[in-house]
Design a protein around this nucleic acid. Sequence first.
DNA 1: AACGATATCAACCGCCTCGTA
DNA 2: GTACGAGGCGGTTGATATCGT
Length: 236
Amino acid sequence: MSTPVGLRKGAWTEEEDKLLRKCIEKYGEGKWHQVPINAGLNRCRKSCRLRWLNYLKPNIKRGDFTPDEDDLIIRLHKLLGNRWSLISGRLLRRTANDVKNHWNSRLQKKVLAREEGKSKTQKTTKATILKPRPRTFKRIAPFSSRENITIEPNILITDQNSENLSPSSSSSKPVEDECTQWWSNLLDYVKIDGETKPRSNAISLELQEEDHFWNDFSLDKDIWQLLSSENDIVMQ
DNA sequence: AACGATATCAACCGCCTCGTA
DNA sequence: GTACGAGGCGGTTGATATCGT
C-alpha cells in the first residue's frame, strides 16, 4: 500500500478514535473509502478499517486469553494453518490480529515445546488433512476446491482418536466421512479448569452466551451437522 | 540505577479476490 | 475479456513495556 503524501500514519490519537467512532455510528460499517472523508480523518481507508475492526468495534474482547481459547486456537491452527480470520471467527469477540499476535508471541512456542516433547516418544508418519480456502469458501460447494497438505499425525487433534486419521483408514473413507472425522476430533475434547471434558460442554456455554455467533459457521455443512448434533446432546 | 535483551501488540504493507464498468 | 478500485487477509515492522544482569 503506497500511502498518498500527507496522510497520517502511526498511532491513533483519542481525537481520531472519537471521529472514527462517530462516523461509523452515523454511516455504519463498510464503504471504507468514504470513511476518511465522512469522518474528517487524514488517514487512508485501510488504516480506518483496521483501527475500527481491531480496536474500536464494540464488544471486542481484549486482554488475556483463557486456557479454553488457547486450546481452541491451537486446534484450529493445526487444522487451518495461519487462517487467522477464520480462527478468530470461531472465538468469541477476538480479532484476527489479536489471535495472530497471541499465537506468534505465546502459543507457537507452547506448541513447539509440546511437539518437541512428543517427537521424542513418537514415530511420525504422513497423513492427509483438509485445508479449506477461506476467502472463497462461502461461495464454493463444500470441498469442491480444497488443497491437500500433509502434517505429522502426532499433531493431530486428539491423541485418543489419532488412529482414526491414519493414512490407511482415512484413504479408504469417503471424503465427507473424512472431513466429519476431522471436525469430530477438533471438537471432541477440551480442557476445562485443567480437566479434559467433551468439547460440547464448552460449545454449549458459548451458545448460551451468544447464540447467533455460530450462525456464520459456514465453513462446510459437516461442521454444521456436528455442531447441531452436539447441541442436541447438550439440550437433552 | 542503567543498560541491553526480549516480549508484546498496534499498525503498516503488499498481495489476492471480487465486483463492476 | 480485462482493467480498475475496494475490501480483506496474512506477514512483517517498529514502538513500547517488561525482564534480567
